[in-house]
Design a protein around this nucleic acid. Sequence first.
DNA 1: GTCTATACGCCGATAGAC
DNA 2: GTCTATCGGCGTATAGAC
Lengths: 200, 200
Amino acid sequence: MDKETQKEQEKEKVRDEILAAALKLFTEKGYFNTSLGEIAEASGVKTAAGVYKHFKNKQEIASALYAWIVDRLSVSIDDIRRRNRKSPEQLREIVDLWFRLTDDAPEVMRFILVLNVSEFLPDEKPLMESPAFIKILRVLHGGIKAGDIKAVDSQRAYCSFFGIIENTLKQVLTGTLTKKADYYQNDAWSIAWDGIAKDS
Amino acid sequence: MDKETQKEQEKEKVRDEILAAALKLFTEKGYFNTSLGEIAEASGVKTAAGVYKHFKNKQEIASALYAWIVDRLSVSIDDIRRRNRKSPEQLREIVDLWFRLTDDAPEVMRFILVLNVSEFLPDEKPLMESPAFIKILRVLHGGIKAGDIKAVDSQRAYCSFFGIIENTLKQVLTGTLTKKADYYQNDAWSIAWDGIAKDS
DNA sequence: GTCTATACGCCGATAGAC
DNA sequence: GTCTATCGGCGTATAGAC
């Protein structure tokens, strides 16, 4: 039925609005400083009770948000791996994605890099065990096996490579670095890559 | 009076016990997941009300903790700068301190690296503006001026250098890297230093 | 399926006995 | 200066009218 699907879509829309509002508030003030009332007010649903028609409870909003973000990243990385064969190119594109997200969707990156997710989602798997980051480790592992990367294992390659990238982005997100993320990208990439690249 | 000073000391001791208990709980479960009751129970004062004889409120416990940690770091860095003239040596010692603290006082490092302090101490200055970290930036700045470090400015030198160091330590603290921090120190130092060292 | 009203619990904080 | 008792408020969550 048309009416049915339209209603479904409307409901989906409200759900997304709640998630968007929650993402904004969580990353601005933190999970525990954000009440359901505020989330409701900032989204289409004007009252806290209405939120419960869409989510079981507050934690599930955060959980859905987390799943959405991690999934989105995972899909993007799949895409990058499909388009690029060599791991250095894959890495370069992941870095580009990270920096673009920081400028275009800072809340998403704040959620990942600034918030301490395990504090309000204790049962969720840590970020490093999510599909997206497992795939990143695979990219690094591929580079090691192909002889492009010198690190001993992918975990440590991650630490030094993404340490630089993510610390830079974190400083941008918290305002310590004042320019847009993109401004720092080439520099950060160069240093990060040189740190793990096998110098032939 | 002897009795007076003894009482003072006793009070100081209780205060420290409260702080120690709070540090442990905050870094384990997060600030908002920790109640004053738990802090009291875990310290000498067995009841929540007793805590208020030593601290104005919950936030002030966190505030005192933060000040204590930042101060301790600042003193250590002063000491390092006194003992070493050249910035590469100073940096090497700061890295050593960071790694040793991670193994010997993980709660302290968790407080700094894992917790999102501004979430529960919104009025406090961010870590990067604390004396300890300003001094670190000065060390980096000294290195740049002396021609040892190639980075354009100390902020960005911080991002890449401490990005590697702190990301490695964070992975150790969250259990993603399974060995003791010390195990990774030399590797992390080498890569981090090479990233900012001027290759003559 | 949305809003009003309300219940319930938890925790931060205070007052007062000893 | 410490423990007992208790208040007050906020915020999550539900129930019930429309």
